[in-house]
Each structure stands twice: as structure tokens, then as C-alpha cells.
Amino acid sequence: MEFIIVKFVLVVVVFLVSLGIAAYSTYAERKIAAFLQDRVGPDRAGPFGILQPLADGVKMFMKEEIIPTHADKGLFILGPSIMMMTACMTGVVIPWGNTLIINGTEYPVQITDINIGILYIFGVVSIGVYGIMIGGWASNNKYSLMGAIRASSQMISYELAMGMSIIALVMMTGTLSIGEIVKQQEGMHWNVFVQPLGFILFIVCAFAECNRTPFDLPECETELVGGYHTEYSSMKLGFYLFAEYINMFISSAIIASLYFGGYNFPFIAQLGLPHNILTLLGTLIFFGKVFFFIFFFMWVRWTLPRFRYDQLMHVGWRVMIPLALFNILLTAVIVLWQNGQFN
């Protein structure tokens, strides 16, 4: 019973934190965009515009809800729901921190550390495409359909390269559990130093999977009006946009935990602080890393222009995948060499 309560509390906290961070990501996106363009950004709602996400949310709810006459009504509603659901589901396997010791019992700050954590994330991400595809198709609009088709082909292409870049990492660490991978990166033994190519491949694929610039072709305004969510309005549109920010947050968390040591930070043992304090500090540092990557996502968005569609496919299939295969080969050779197989 206690187990269930602890997990329930963790789930609720992770859910609320994801939503909160996603909400403030919208604010951060606008502020960062403004700063990079020498503007001020939203500053009217509350001090420094801090209540802007609230105002946006109220606006989204108040807008008129339109379902096109010729749309497939059930699927039209299902699309954003799937999108939101899959976005929120990924957070459960991410280790948000080390363990907390309360009354002698050790509680991990992670909802569940299943031994196929990475595969779980891939599964959920691959389902996420359906949200876009179903929404785009059900709108009965050619722009939406084009957006949906672009999204699905882009997601499939980059999922391959992403999976392959992860395989190299799994070969190094020898485990599919994210909790275990983070534990192995104690101190400064971050995976990014041993897998730099894998990291670059992974982060590029993460951009593509999140439909962020320079890979935001599914909602490419200049060509497709609004892409897959052209026909959406009110909170359904809000769900699509919101899910994008949750995905960005989760991707940042995954990058931070797979390649940047998660809650680990250097000189952790020299501090001589009690275990629980160290855990909280680790969680804070983990969030610091996550925020840096969220900032990086936005920074890239306001720097790079969008790819052309053939360039996107070219990069995905003829650059990323061969590089990922090469990385796997290289990693395999190094792992075997370290194990003394060549002597």
C-alpha cells in the first residue's frame, strides 16, 4: 500500500512538473526569441510578463471550438489526446534524482526503473506520431494531410538514426535501464565524453522527433498554412502546441540523463553532505542541465532556418544513418579492445 502511495505521489509530481515546465517553456520561448532579436518579449501580464502562460491558457480555453463539418469527429478529438498522452507518458522512466532515505527506507526519485527503459521511450515516441497523423488525416484538409504525411515520414526516418545512436550507448553501458545508465556516469564520467558522435546524432534526431526548427516541416507555415493542426482551434490546438513543449522538456531530460550524467555532478563525494541533501542537490543540478537543453532547443530555433524537405530526407537517410552505423562499429571495436579480445 505504501508503495502505491509513494508511486502515486511521484506520478502526480512528475505530471505537474512537466505541465508547469511546459507552460513556462512557452513563456521562455517567447522571451528568448525576443532577446535574441533585441526585443523585450511579453511583459504586460504580471511583473516581467510572468503570468503570460496563464493568460495564454485562458485565451486558449475561451476560443471558439470548431470541428469541421467533413472531419472525422472521433479521430479529430483522438489526435490531440494521443499527442498529449504520449507526451506525458515518457516521464515515468526518467531518473529525476538519486534515492531519498526516509525513516530508514530508500525511495528512488524515479517512478519506475524498468529494465527496458530506453525501449519504452522509443515505443512511446513512436506512438506519438499517430497523434499528428490521425489529427492531420481527420481534419479532411489537404494541408493538414500533407503535414501529417511529412510528420510521419520524418519521424520514421529519424527514429532509425536515433535508435542506432542509442545502440552504441547501450553497447558501452551494457544496460537498457536509464537509472542504471545514470548510475554509471558518477562524478564526471559523462557519456558525452566517450560518445561524442552518438550525442550529436542523438540531439539532431531529438530535434527532428520534437518537430522543432530546423526540422519543423510538419507545421511549416510558409508552405502548409499551419501543417497538421491547420483546422484545430481552442484547447485542441493548445494540446498540440503544449505537447510539443512537453516533448521538448522530456527530450532535454533524456539527453541530460543519457549523455550528461543525469543527477550526477563532479566532486559529489567531497562535499560531505547528508545523503538526502545530496539527492536534492543532484535533482536541482539535473533540472539545471534540462533547462540548459531547453534553452538550447530555443536557441537553435531562433538561429537556423528550416530545412527543405529533400534536404531533410537526405540528411536523415544518407548522413545520419551511415554515421550512426559507423559509430556502432567504432564503439564495438573499442568495447572489444577494452575487454582484451584483440590480445
Partner: peptide, 19 residues
């Protein structure tokens, strides 16, 4: 090229706002 672009944009973070 991407990194030089990122450097250019991040420099603008510290420039005077035109607003």
C-alpha cells in the same frame, strides 16, 4: 556554420533592446 550562427544569435542576448 551552425556554431558560428549560434554565436551570432547568443551575442544578441546581451545587446541593447530596441523596444
Amino acid at each position: 556554420a551552425i556554431i558560428s550562427g549560434l554565436v551570432i544569435t547568443v551575442k544578441h542576448l546581451f545587446k541593447k533592446r530596441a523596444t
